[in-house]
Nucleic acid binder design. Structure first.
Lengths: 233, 233
DNA sequence: CGTTGGTTTGATGGAGATCAAGCCTCGTGG
DNA sequence: CCACGAGGCTTGATCTCCATCAAACCAACG
């Protein structure tokens, strides 16, 4: 894990008013600054390895992460995506449950779990902020379960695009109508429980039906948000 | 929602040392007793309705719950199961996201979310306990995602049985070798993203292969735990 | 150029959904 | 007591969707 050590510049942090630590007063944040490290990851580098002993947790400042596990055939299952201001890591388990890997160049604040836990004990508002994030993660996770359970490939891909359009947009509830997929076809397949080929076919189908347009392999433009929503069912 | 009002008997509570509230000192628990209601649900009765306004949260004392949503064709998707000492409900969202329904006769402590939140603010240890529960739920949820993603029907059913055997056992990490399924075939299907018929077929296959035995429609006995684990992959 | 990694497209086969009966248990009423 | 029906479960036959195998495509890069 590459780890240049740097002072955390909370004042200039792009997620300073959305991340869990935003619940703290500036002087209280000093306690976190003291124990945290600023870390940069390049696309593909891994933050935590499943099974790894030394537990840590982190707030994502910019970029994107995936939480994934490898089954015994070596195929990757993506369990969750992490967006800026998101929080990852186990505060309680002695070992990391899953791999956490950057899917875009990323910037994070990383903390040793036990020391972070101590700060949480000191500041209840931080605990509540983490609880809120955790609840949101839980909800997102259940949405993914919903998406994967007994739906057609087309519905899954459409639902995934809808979710990505919403995540890409800054304003909530209004999907961006032009965005870049953070995932490769293989990663999308691993997330939706499909194969690369099927994902590709459904995308071309959505394009033929003029629900979306494509710009390069990862660029998506939303042509008919209503119909996308409808086919996601 | 049927709701007989009763004093909460924390001292005699079967989950008093496992539930979130066990993090509190006896006198601190009084604050919860003051705002909580003791509720009994019969199998099939619903605790929260998706979309419902008045948000509440609850600790399950005995029995079992399912968290589920209905898609537009009216088929149920089960997103999670809740076991005794589990915590359900939204402390932050203004509306309930999913249905919460008893799958066995159940006993709960129900609290209005805002008042519970106020108690959480007062006692950081409660916040941390809830955070731990939430993390565990998140982990369980990701296990389910893992289970549903591109696995065969047989693997899903085997994996589900394994999880139920572990949940039924009192001692952790040692599966019970004889237990009752808390779910009907239809509910299992809704949880695993399969159909009733497929679930049934996989169960009979596991029985033919002498991995499990059956006693009535819901009784399961574990004949070969190792092979069950292996077929779950 | 050739090579490499990601993507698309085509042809085929199989796992599981769907449709359709039977079966078993239990509760109800004659 | 038996008949009856209703739910839930099992079993069988067929069909569909998607995984699999295979090849072509395309851009980036040495």
């Amino acid at each position: 894990m590459p780890a240049p050590r740097n002072p955390l510049a909370c004042d200039a942090c792009p997620v300073r008013d959305r991340a869990a630590c935003s619940a703290l007063e500036p002087n209280q944040r000093d306690d976190l600054q003291r124990i945290g490290r600023h870390v940069w990851l390049r696309r593909g580098e891994t933050l935590f390895h499943a099974g790894e002993e030394a537990p840590a947790c982190a707030t994502l400042i910019s970029g994107a992460l995936k939480i994934s596990s490898l089954d015994e055939q070596g195929t990757e299952r993506i369990l969750s995506l992490v967006h800026p201001a998101g929080f990852v890591g186990e505060m309680f388990a002695p070992v990391a449950h899953h791999d956490v890997i950057a899917i875009a160049d990323s910037e994070l604040c990383v903390f040793p779990s036990d020391q972070y836990g101590a700060v949480v004990d000191r500041y209840p508002r931080l605990a509540k902020a983490l609880l809120r994030r955790s609840s949101e993660d839980l909800f997102a996770s259940r949405e993914l379960i919903d998406l994967m359970g007994r739906r057609t490939a087309l519905q899954r891909v459409a639902g995934f695009l809808k979710a990505m359009a919403e995540a890409a947009s800054t304003s909530p509830c209004h999907p961006a109508n032009r965005f870049e997929l953070p995932l490769s076809r293989g990663e999308m397949a691993g997330m939706l429980g499909l194969t690369i080929e099927t994902v590709s076919r459904q995308l071309t189908k959505l394009e033929r039906d003029e629900v979306i347009g494509r710009e390069g392999p990862r660029g998506i433009q939303l042509k008919d948000a209503a119909r996308l929503e409808a086919t996601a069912a």
